[in-house]
Design a protein around this nucleic acid. Sequence first.
DNA 1: CCATAACTACCGGGAAACCGGTAGTTTCGC
DNA 2: GCGAAACTACCGGTTTCCCGGTAGTTATGG
Lengths: 213, 213
Amino acid sequence: MASESSSRIRILCVDDHPLVREGVTRKIDLQPDMEVVASASTGEEAIRLFAQHRPDVTIMDLNLPGMSGLETIEVLRRTRPDARIVVLTMHKGDEDIYRALEAGAAAYVLKTTVSDDLVRVIRDVHLGARPMSSDVATQLAARKVSPPLTRRERAVIELMARGKRNKEIAADLAISEDTVEVHARNIFSKLGVRDRTAAVTAALKRGIIHLGG
Amino acid sequence: MASESSSRIRILCVDDHPLVREGVTRKIDLQPDMEVVASASTGEEAIRLFAQHRPDVTIMDLNLPGMSGLETIEVLRRTRPDARIVVLTMHKGDEDIYRALEAGAAAYVLKTTVSDDLVRVIRDVHLGARPMSSDVATQLAARKVSPPLTRRERAVIELMARGKRNKEIAADLAISEDTVEVHARNIFSKLGVRDRTAAVTAALKRGIIHLGG
DNA sequence: CCATAACTACCGGGAAACCGGTAGTTTCGC
DNA sequence: GCGAAACTACCGGTTTCCCGGTAGTTATGG
């Protein structure tokens, strides 16, 4: 639409908070070398606007209603493997950060970070870099030491968080109650806790699971 | 500092996310009748800046690191009972909303709300109104039907969320384990659950407790 | 083809939690 | 001063959970 946007970095901003979108837009539009070409508040909208605008860089919040930011990233990267995505997240230590990076996100920025970092990261990512902040690097390394939960274990703790008993979890997953207890013990061991309540809160803190609506 | 700020509504913005602060500032400064005179990222800073600037309206996020938004509101209203405060919060259904309103907040706005509502609410609050959105009103009414947790019950579920056993909770609160179990049963009953894990997740969803650190 | 990881399943014992009662004390408002 | 609510405490019984083992099956990958 604009006329003299020859070499500007074209950005898609995805966040369900209008105020955050405005903050990002303002910050970016103040830069001479970048501009926000579209904003989305949901994953579905993001996919549509991405196809329509083909932005150079996409800023993606992870906590979206409905389709999550992680799922959105996976879809975008599947159809467009060269999509450059910067994750914008609330809390550090969120397990989803690592899953997002594994899904192809190029970098992540905390919402508590001063916004100068955001534009710097956008420039780096646009140049093809994958800037990795030191705390993420150390936590990625730490993941190798204490391995993440397996798929099945995530399913179990997800149901635990819903208040299900082991017997009910067994029924839901069509496995024996004994097996559920094995998964439970492995979860406790990995998270460094001794009961299910602490396991659920620990998993929530680390972003392994989320409180659904 | 500025010259022609004769009749403008002077606003203090409190939020730990720089991008949100920028979004709010941008939105407000675009209005002809209001301006942001100061921004704070913590409760302590907010109290200091409030005393310094005496804003007409304070926009307050509830989820602040360290001193919570709720505590900050209580302090502000205790020293300045005429302080007009608009709560800016993430999720609706957050118990803290009602505690904030009881503590003297004049209104609340969701971060997912379109930002036009924010400036409208600010104007109303500045005129002395306490605009109450319908869903808050219904939920306030609902609180009378199913009473909120008592102080002691909140203390118990807080410790539950930390993974403490009943015996440990009893020791922490210097009461008998039997009494803890009584509180636990009352909590389950009020929250409509049957075990502690579900109680903790339900309390987290409703904003009765929060995941610290 | 062998190792590793993930998932499955079982057993027995002990600890913790949950349930349904009853009941005394304090505190607060009417 | 009386009722209501909150907090405290106890009992007996049942269920669920937690722990420490052992072990078979199925990919996955070097």
